[in-house]
């Protein structure tokens, strides 16, 4: 079992719900301090978004943030160097599109991620059918592959995705790209169908934008992922204090 999964299973056994905030790497010069503020406020793991020019699965907020990070010169090398300066020890999970790793080289990418303290990866445009090379490259580097399950995923695919997922299984609450949503979504149904075939920790994401939505999601799931709503705080000019307040409000809501 990959160490990320061992860690997250142990977390679940303590009864604590996992809170996983998402950051766009390189969005601001002090983004590393934002990550540290989130961990200080009770994040259990952090998703590090690696900016890509054509983020097919992202809504306007993360698109805009990725563009800004790229204009600031962010690259896989630069953000990995910055990750080494982190003074926290929660698991880091890279989230990006396959072309970034494909272009950098799969072995080289997973080596780079591992040496930067990253222990998991979410690559939303890499379905298991195309993932065998990537899974091979990540196997020797202890990088857990996290697959997403969508409300549209039929039962036969769902079993396969849940079996292949390492670390946790990502349950999409909505048929939508990342971004704010006021609907309660289908997270409960998706989590229940994953539970029926696997005991892997299961977190809900996509459209979780308020502490109340996070609490509702955690009634059924083992944790939540909060992306666009937090990135918006930073796009609005928020600093480390604002990040800390934001994450604290989610922490209180799900504890």
């Amino acid at each position: 079992m990959k160490s990320l999964e061992t860690h997250l299973r142990a977390l679940r056994s303590t009864g604590r719900k996992a809170l996983v905030p998402y950051f766009v790497a390189g969005l601001t010069p002090d983004w590393i301090q934002h990550v540290e503020a989130a961990v200080h406020a009770g994040a259990d793991a952090v998703e590090i978004g690696i900016p890509f020019s054509d983020p097919m699965m992202d809504g306007v907020v993360i698109q805009g943030a990725a563009l800004r990070a790229l204009e600031a010169g962010t690259t896989l090398d630069s953000l990995c160097a910055q990750l080494l300066t982190l003074s926290t020890s929660v698991p880091l999970i890279a989230m990006t599109y396959y072309n970034i790793f494909h272009h950098y080289g799969l072995e080289r990418s997973t080596g780079k991620l591992q040496s930067s303290g990253v222990s998991g990866a979410i690559v939303p445009d890499l379905p298991p059918e195309e993932a065998s090379d990537w899974m091979k490259a990540s196997a020797s580097r202890d990088i857990a592959n996290i697959f997403m399950v969508a409300p549209s995923t039929p039962p036969e695919r769902l079993g396969r995705l849940a079996r292949l997922s390492e670390g946790f299984c990502y349950a999409s609450a909505r048929m939508a790209v990342t971004g704010k949503s006021s609907e309660s979504g289908q997270g409960r149904r998706v989590v229940e169908s994953i539970r029926a075939v696997s005991d892997i920790p299961t977190y809900i994401g996509i459209g979780i934008s308020t502490p109340n939505q996070a609490r509702e999601a955690c009634e059924v799931s083992d944790g939540v992922i909060v992306g666009s709503a937090l990135v918006q705080v930073i796009l609005n000019g928020g600093g480390a204090d604002d990040v800390e307040n934001f994450v604290t409000s989610f922490r209180r809501s799900i504890d």
Binding site: Y98, P124, R157
Partner: peptide
């Protein structure tokens, strides 16, 4: 799986795979 030699395939988010 939709490959023409080394090219092609299906690199889409899970939400679009069933479609």
């Amino acid at each position: 799986r939709g490959h023409f030699g080394d090219f092609g395939g299906r690199f889409v988010p899970e939400a679009l795979m069933p479609a």
